[in-house]
Amino acid sequence: MTTVLKPAFQRPVSLKDVQTHFCPGCHHGTIHRLVAEAIDHFDIQERTIGVASVGCSVFLYGYFDVDVVEAPHGRAPAVATGVKRVLKDRMVFTYQGDGDLAAIGTSEIIHAANRGEGITVIFVNNTTYGMTGGQMAPTTLPEQVTTTSPYGRNVGSEGYPIRMAELLSILEGVTFSARVAVDSPRHVLEAGKTIRKAFQCQVEGAGFAFVEVLSACPTNWGMNSLKANERVGREMIPYFPLGVFRDHTAKAGKKPQGESKLSHLGKKS
């Protein structure tokens, strides 16, 4: 009997073979890979549409070999809603930073989630506005120094970091909401599984799925790659606990796709 040897490690097919623009030690690259692995796993590259947000991940189309629509800052869930309502049998995901999703786009994410849009949302929480040079984000930790909180985030006047995965988990429209990190091999494996589950949710027509990924931003945190990676576990995870906050995938079952939900109304004469 011959054994076919499969390579244990290779570049996902849906990830292009190009160098990224991400800074050394940035976790966006790892997260991109996990998303691409999920797309490959379900063999949905040919029917996936990514919605890019404004932030460091704006070049989504440069790295993922899938169709992509670029959304204005914060509006990716609304754009994805438009896409998914037209192309009901396609897989639609957004990939958004914390400024994009948890500040300017709060309204769009909450309402897309609440409507139970059948999309997958990848939310990258790096406690700062990466692309614009490290300003305070809604997820910036108490006392954290950023370029616009030079004395440290003062929760008395600037409020507390928002825990989006928990916030969305109380909405009835949400099928799956979880938080993961990619700061250790074990966490990367768990993150990969969770992201896969979020895509599975869509593949099975089970509804809205959300995965928050804690991410390092060495450049804007003023740390080297190792120190930034350590900070995720030391400072972020205690405030942003990892875990699954809502999982109704078993209950949600399969929703009909590509059909008018109101066929009982009959045709207009």
Partner: peptide, 14 residues
């Protein structure tokens, strides 16, 4: 209205 114009953007993109 912000969400609706962006839903239009998404639908038109299809």
């Amino acid at each position: 209205e912000i969400a609706s114009i962006n839903m239009l953007l998404g639908a038109s993109a299809c």
